[in-house]
Design a protein around this nucleic acid. Structure first.
Lengths: 155, 155
DNA sequence: TATTGTTATACTCTATAACTATA
DNA sequence: TATAGTTATAGAGTATAACAATA
């Protein structure tokens, strides 16, 4: 056994400082993912605050903007938003003049961004992309590998 | 220009299948993190359902269990739970006989798991760790590098 | 019969503000 | 003065169930 230097007496007492806790959670991938996700979500909330839209609403606008004429139900599936929650969400965006809908076949609705919706989406997406780029640029890991690993955890 | 073979007529119409959408969100790290986190959280919810506790409650029990006698406020800080939400959380766990508290200095509370709390924590943590291990074992990426990358995104 | 959209409702988690007591 | 804990309350976000209309 290698000799060990005796630590100072106060180092032997756990909880001395009173604030640093042992965290078994730090060894869990799920926990680390949640904390990282929450950190980026927090940034996103700040970015979106001036626009007066939520993260879910922004995701919705971005997806509809990239798929003009898409069915409401498909957007809901893609974002894992339940039908029952989709109605008031679309209602808010329509009320703000950001989204327009039109019947497809009598039971489905097609969605499109209005000009105002496109303008807001463009502004917001630019800021979101820039913030995301900044978060990625100091990663000490291959970005493609990271994305692939994250994708492998979904479903 | 290279000659192009004419596609079948129905292939020219986007949205033919009607379900796959173009998703600019897939290029965002924040979005991929959120989806991956939500997937693992879903697993966790299923694991905890038989115990009748939430993900937050399980995290709380695990952290208190690893730090007997810790201050309630320190646990709240470590898990980013606001003081106002901590009181009913601890109240529920005390009412179920999983956690015990004791005054430290007249304004702070120290928390400890009861025997029942330790037993539940042991059972739950074993299942959680096993589920987490399964999620990690097929990652095509260095685990240490992944954890470091995730940590670099927090704060 | 299965899907789409709607309505109503409830539950969880989180957020804010005000208050008391203590270091 | 800053911190710890409490209380009350409000807001997102998400969940279920039931319904009508349509494919």
């Amino acid at each position: 056994m290698a000799p060990r230097i005796a630590p100072p007496m106060n180092a032997a007492a756990p909880r001395a400082g009173g604030s640093k806790l042992v965290s078994p959670l730090d060894g869990l991938l799920g926990y680390r993912l949640r904390r990282a996700s929450m950190a980026l979500m927090g940034d996103l909330v700040e970015i979106l605050r001036p626009f007066g839209i939520s993260v879910v609403e922004a995701s919705f606008l971005i997806l509809v903007g990239a798929n003009p004429g898409c069915r409401q139900s498909d957007v809901g599936r893609a974002l894992a938003i339940k039908r029952a929650n989709l109605t008031p969400l679309v209602g808010r965006l329509k009320a703000r003049g950001l989204v327009a809908d039109a019947p497809i076949d009598g039971r489905s609705l097609s969605l499109t961004l209005t000009d105002a919706g496109v303008a807001l989406r463009d502004e917001a997406l630019a800021l979101i992309s820039e913030s995301d780029r900044q978060a990625r640029q100091h990663l000490a890991i291959d970005e493609q590998a990271l994305f692939a690993a994250l994708a492998s955890l979904v479903r």
